[in-house]
């Protein structure tokens, strides 16, 4: 069956954002899609990471936080549960 209208090519445009519920990082209070205070570029250069507790922060922000805490007592600054990086971040 032939159609009177047929698609040959499609150029689609999408934008990506971090899939991190709250729109701002709980540490620096900047949007996830923006830069943390020391970051230069948004996006790939300012990655967002998740803890097993489900809370997300800019990678730079949580690293700074964890460094400021005792090695033996690394907790999520939000829920105070032990901090552990989640292997794969949620996608939707």
């Amino acid at each position: 069956m032939t159609f009177d209208v047929e698609i040959v090519r499609w150029h689609a445009v999408a934008s990506w954002t971090w899939n991190a519920g709250d729109d701002v990082c709980g540490i620096c209070r900047m949007p996830f899609d923006g830069c943390p205070p020391d970051g230069k570029y948004p996006g790939d250069d300012s990655p967002v990471v998740w803890g097993v507790c489900g809370h997300a922060f800019h990678l730079q922000c949580i690293q700074k936080w964890l460094q400021s805490q005792a090695q033996t007592d690394q907790r999520c600054p939000f829920c105070r549960r032990a901090w552990e990086f989640k292997a794969a971040a949620p996608s939707s």
């Binding site: 209208v5 047929e6 445009v13 971090w18 991190a20 996608s91």
Partner: peptide, 22 residues
């Protein structure tokens, strides 16, 4: 998303273009 975890995509229909045979 399998390549980039932790992201979501928003589609911008108004920017899409096609080549059609009509």
């Amino acid at each position: 998303l399998s390549k980039h975890s932790g992201r979501r995509l928003v589609w911008h229909n108004s920017l899409g273009t096609c080549v059609l045979k009509v």
